[in-house]
Write a protein that binds this DNA or RNA. Structure first.
Lengths: 233, 233
DNA sequence: CAATCACCGATTGTCAACAATTACGGTTGC
DNA sequence: GCAACCGTAATTGTTGACAATCGGTGATTG
């Protein structure tokens, strides 16, 4: 297991910061899917008490990144085709709602902002900085959700994006056609900017449909990606 | 504050049971919106340690029924028009997805089951047992979601239903037209049973639209229902 | 008299010890 | 040889004590 940096600077609550650290390790693939997490080990490495680690793990369990087996173990969530299918179908309707509401609220500055982010993404791709491009992709979707001015939706969306990222890392997913990716996003934000709620929702939902179809197919073949059982030594 | 019954029977984890008790008190209106919750008071009344209560409250915060103000206080969530609008719009898309997927999975036994629940609801209404009818209403929606076979969706839906219930209690909401309510549900489950995914989704989404419209109007009038500030003595 | 500041009680945040439960390996009996 | 049983080590669950923080109260000062 990789070394975690201690957390005693800052002023936020320790358990939140512990959760942030563990979460980023999960999202970076340092703690792989299905790997076991030991409270004592985490508390040693983060230099906080076990209770604090427990609280952090409970948060992450609520976010769907970690599973608890009572009296027995904590482990990083799985990343099977079923999980992927669940994640992308949920993402579809959440972003659909977000796009619909965003279209109803959008202002001129918002429009500018969205176009800027999209341009940044385009530049990142054209310069071959694909990791940056992916980050900006997430930022763009989060920015649209923000326009919806819907706290609960934003919270759900934040969590589902974490899960999307996790699933991408675990499954080694990479976009295959960056031109199409850009075109998708351009269409989406233009629909939002134009205030066309129906079209914005439809585009947001169809944005994930490629993955959903892929994963559905993978499920029907009985793809055995549930069997992964990495141990975390 | 009402007396809570102690929890030392059963075998589930204490924090889960504590969360269940506090949750049901919130949903029953015993802890009203925006009322303060004291860790020591809860731990005394539930006869568990403060740490356990903290864990329970953290869970409920994750479910959106409770808010935490760091280093200062826990309080029951608010129940403003904005909250209601958020809850019902989210519910709409979640149940939309659920109905769509349910329509794709439904079997003959499922159909029977749905019709049975619907009939029970009808009977409850005709016998004037309106509280039971509301419970069965929730059961029916949960049953449809179950058919979607989507763990994450089911979890989100469970939480949003709690929030719906909470909002109904706090706002004193009562269905105004039971005939329409029954008709809505009949149409919905028949669409699901017929496997008509598009129609099922559409009906599930429109099922909440009445409330959404009401709450949107209430918002635009600047209805001051955010101002509620009950104290919990 | 109003504004500011230092104190104090109340409440939440963190910790380390103790209890309960589980999983595993060895032993025993058949 | 195999299955059931039991003891033990490892791990999670729970608790009470201690630390940090906040909000209000009253004294102080301009």
């Amino acid at each position: 297991m990789a070394k975690l940096t201690s957390l005693k600077a800052e002023k936020r609550q320790l358990d939140r910061r512990a959760a942030d650290h563990i979460r980023s390790h999960i999202l970076d693939g340092i703690f792989p899917a299905n790997s076991r997490l030991l409270e004592t080990q985490l508390s040693d490495e983060l230099e906080v008490s076990r209770g604090t680690v427990r609280s952090a793990l409970a948060q992450l369990a609520g976010e769907g990144l970690v599973k608890q087996v009572a009296f027995t173990r904590w482990e990083v969530s799985g990343s099977s085709s079923t999980d992927g299918w669940e994640i992308y179908t949920l993402r579809g309707v959440l972003e659909g709602l977000g796009a619909r509401l965003a279209a109803a609220n959008v202002t001129a500055e918002d429009a500018e902002r969205l176009r800027t982010i999209c341009a940044e993404m385009l530049r990142a791709i054209s310069e071959g900085r694909f990791q940056d491009a992916t980050d900006i992709d997430f930022d763009l979707h989060a920015a649209i959700i923000e326009l919806a001015r819907h706290r609960r939706l934003a919270e759900q969306h934040r969590m589902i994006l974490h899960q999307v990222r996790f699933h991408m890392v675990q499954s080694g997913f990479l976009p295959k056609d960056y031109d199409e990716l850009i075109s998708d996003h351009k269409q989406l934000i233009e629909a939002v900017i134009a205030g066309d709620a129906d079209r914005a929702e439809k585009l947001a939902r169809s944005h994930n449909e490629g993955e959903v179809r892929l994963l559905t197919a993978s499920l029907q073949q009985g793809h055995p990606s549930d069997r992964i059982d990495v141990e975390n030594v």
